[in-house]
């Protein structure tokens, strides 16, 4: 009897842990018992998690929001005083000549990165589905960009893309594809393209691995049946692979989007956002405002903007995964 009770209470523990987000604990929530003691016990289990979240997530977040309304200068660090200035920081960032350019750059960088990371990642995933000699080795080698610390690969790319002595220009010139070296990192018109290229290279393994995993989940008999029905390779890809890969695709793209939005090291190592802000994205711009120009209020504004964008897409992601689960369950 006693053991039974414990058992029946243990079962909804998973539910109890998170219920406060949605609705209050109580009989209506379907928790058996509902005696006062259970509520306190439940609270005891929740408290550490909430304390952790409050201390490490909510507090800095609130601090950042507060800072965006303050004139936070070098002096503030010494005196602890930073007057509130209302929306003036937001106005200043909006008027900053680099801001509009940075937003456009961020969109171009993110869309460009996602498109090619996903496209190439998918192509490689489909390619590696076939079994062939050394396939496994090759697939593992493709993970290298993912395994290398970004500062290392970024520095290597910096050398590769050097205008005069970089191997990329040398190779292109040898192949007579160009007759003038391209200033990959030293021109305002190509620097964004260059950092995007490197970021695509960095992101391909992630896309490939997840999509490859997704492909494994598609039953082989579907392809066999389709082949029997006379479907060609393209039709099989178009009508079996793509639709069945949709839930995975949604996950890959939204996660990729959030990862790309916050890319910092690649740009910092390659161009520091330059020349003349031509490869500045919101992330590097926030760093520049806070830690180079030492206008912390302005940096906080851009940080907040990033958070809002990231939260929006985080919800999109959760929605996408929920839909995916729903379909899979049905």
């Amino acid at each position: 009897m006693m053991a039974d009770t414990i058992h029946s209470q243990a079962a909804p523990a998973g539910g109890v842990r998170v219920r406060p987000i949605g609705k209050p604990m109580g009989r209506s929530a379907g928790v058996r018992g509902g005696r006062g003691g259970t509520g306190w016990a439940a609270f005891g289990f929740i408290a550490p998690a909430w304390l952790y979240v409050a201390a490490f997530y909510v507090y800095p977040l609130a601090g950042n929001v507060r800072m965006s309304f303050q004139d936070y200068t070098v002096t503030s660090f010494f005196t602890g005083r930073a007057p509130f200035v209302g929306w003036r920081n937001y106005e200043a960032v909006w008027r900053d000549p680099a801001f509009a350019k940075t937003v456009v750059n961020t969109v171009a960088f993110t869309v460009g990165s996602l498109l090619f990371q996903f496209g190439i990642g998918l192509a490689l995933a489909v390619f590696f589905q076939r079994r062939f000699p050394l396939g496994g080795v090759l697939r593992s080698l493709l993970l290298v960009p993912w395994l290398l610390p970004l500062v290392v690969s970024g520095t290597a790319w910096r050398w590769i893309m050097e205008t005069d002595s970089g191997v990329l220009n040398q190779a292109l010139m040898q192949a007579h594809l160009i007759d003038q070296p391209i200033p990959w990192l030293a021109s305002t018109s190509v620097s964004l393209l260059s950092v995007t290229l490197v970021n695509v290279w960095v992101g391909i393994p992630f896309n490939m691995v997840i999509l490859y995993g997704g492909l494994q989940g598609i039953p082989a008999h579907l392809y066999e049946a389709a082949a029997l029905d006379g479907a060609g390779a393209w039709q099989r890809f178009r009508h079996i692979t793509l639709p069945l890969l949709r839930p995975v695709t949604a996950v890959v793209l939204t996660l990729g989007l959030i990862y790309t939005l916050k890319v910092f090291d690649v740009i910092m190592v390659l161009t520091q956002g330059g020349p003349a802000n031509s490869s500045q994205t919101l992330t590097t711009f926030a760093y520049d405002l806070s830690f180079q120009r030492l206008t912390f209020g302005h940096g906080a504004v851009v940080g907040n903007l990033l958070i809002v964008v990231a939260v929006v897409f985080a919800f999109v992601y959760l929605r996408a995964t929920r839909d995916g689960e729903g379909r899979a369950a049905a």
């Binding site: 979240v53 977040l61 950042n64 800072m67 959030i258 910092f264 806070s290 906080a300 958070i307 919800f315």
Partner: peptide, 19 residues
């Protein structure tokens, strides 16, 4: 997920403000 995402974005600018 929302918290994780939020905090990664935040880490770019968050800095101590207790003085």
């Amino acid at each position: 997920a929302v918290t994780v995402v939020t905090v990664t974005a935040l880490s770019a600018t968050a800095c101590g403000d207790s003085v």
